[in-house]
């Protein structure tokens, strides 16, 4: 039958076309070492907050070492650790520290690792641009707004001098490392938070929510504020020693507290035994400043960098 022939031809053409397109960023189709001494594949997975950092590192590293393939996934900090302790990834991205169950899982699988800090972030508290009554909030005030069981729904309940405006809260959902860190720092316990705020996994949506609501208040990483300064106003935070605006400097010197947080990667000992992974991790730390700048985070201080380097060295040797 003539249409069978035509169908077969189409399928064949499609298959050929697809097979012919096995290109890559560097024009390499195999992992031979033409163009760079190193070759191999490095797998990262984990927090979607830390992913932009790892992606920036991967991109820059691959430009110098075209023989190496670096891939980054975003299964979440928990999902990343699960794969990491299952020996499916080489390095785990994390926006929080590894937890007890995960430590056990890795131990059972015989995987040793180190906690390597690669950047800093400042969690920013933002309000609507038209909000002209608040410039600074103390941690106790933030706690009053956000703690579990809080029923505050008006700005004048936060401080008597504030006007009578409805308080609308936006923030990340419970699965976000940002949520964990904020609740831990402000309310004293991770996960301790009121439940009736507008939660979302996408910080851009929080931006939109606060920008669209006169009495809106939200929190997320510094980069989302810096990219939306035309729509939002950032609130200074008083951690006990005066009101501080989040910025690269105040996060690095520690004065923006308690909402400065470290961001980590966890390489495994087995992975570090491979030359390309070692080179990549070294590259990550050598270029920490450039990488943080591209990913819109706050870079490490000299001390933090030295500490991280030491950890990597000890893991590689031990």
């Amino acid at each position: 039958m003539r249409h069978r022939g035509l169908a077969a031809l189409t399928v064949g053409a499609l298959a050929l076309g697809v097979a012919a397109c096995g290109g890559s960023a560097n024009g390499e189709t195999s992992s031979s070492d033409a163009g760079g001494k190193l070759s191999g594949t490095i797998k990262l997975d984990g927090s979607s907050t830390v992913a932009p950092l790892s992606e920036a590192a991967a991109e820059m590293f691959q430009a110098d070492n075209p023989g190496v393939r670096v891939t980054v996934g975003t299964s979440g900090t928990g999902g990343g650790f699960e794969k990491f302790c299952n020996a499916e990834t080489d390095i785990s991205d994390a926006s929080r520290q590894i937890e007890a169950d995960e430590v056990d899982a890795c131990k059972k699988a015989g995987i040793a690792y180190e906690e390597v800090q690669v950047a800093n972030d400042g969690l920013s508290v933002v309000v609507n641009k038209a909000n002209d009554w608040v410039t600074c909030l103390t941690v106790p005030q933030l706690r009053k707004i956000w703690e579990k069981g809080s029923k505050l729904d008006n700005w004048n309940q936060v401080d008597a001098s504030f006007p009578d405006k409805e308080l609308e809260l936006f923030g990340p959902g419970t699965d976000s490392g940002t949520f964990d860190y904020f609740t831990g720092a402000v309310n004293g316990e991770e996960g301790n938070s009121r439940t009736d705020y507008q939660a979302t996994e996408d910080d851009n949506v929080t931006v939109q929510g606060v920008a669209g609501s006169e009495g809106g208040l939200g929190y997320f990483g510094l980069s989302y504020y810096e990219q939306n300064q035309d729509k939002l106003k950032v609130v200074q935070v008083d951690g006990g020693s005066g009101c501080v605006t989040p910025s690269k400097e105040t996060v690095q010197d520690g004065s923006y507290k308690p909402l400065s947080r470290p961001l980590f990667v966890y390489p495994s000992d087995k992975a570090l035994a491979r030359p390309e992974v070692q080179a990549f991790t070294k590259f990550y730390l050598d270029n920490a400043e450039r990488i943080a700048a591209q990913a819109l985070f706050v870079p490490l201080t000299a001390d933090q960098e030295a500490a991280s380097r030491q950890k990597v060295d000890s893991l590689a040797k031990g």
Binding site: G79, G173, Q198, E201
Partner: peptide, 30 residues
């Protein structure tokens, strides 16, 4: 992503699937 026992369509509410998605791609330790 805010669970809300209400039948008012003007309100925000989180469905079963939204919860699974948010929690599944998130940070829960296995």
């Amino acid at each position: 992503g805010t669970p809300n026992l209400s039948f008012d369509p003007a309100e925000a509410m989180q469905t079963m699937t939204a919860f699974i998605a948010a929690a599944g791609i998130g940070d829960q330790p296995t």
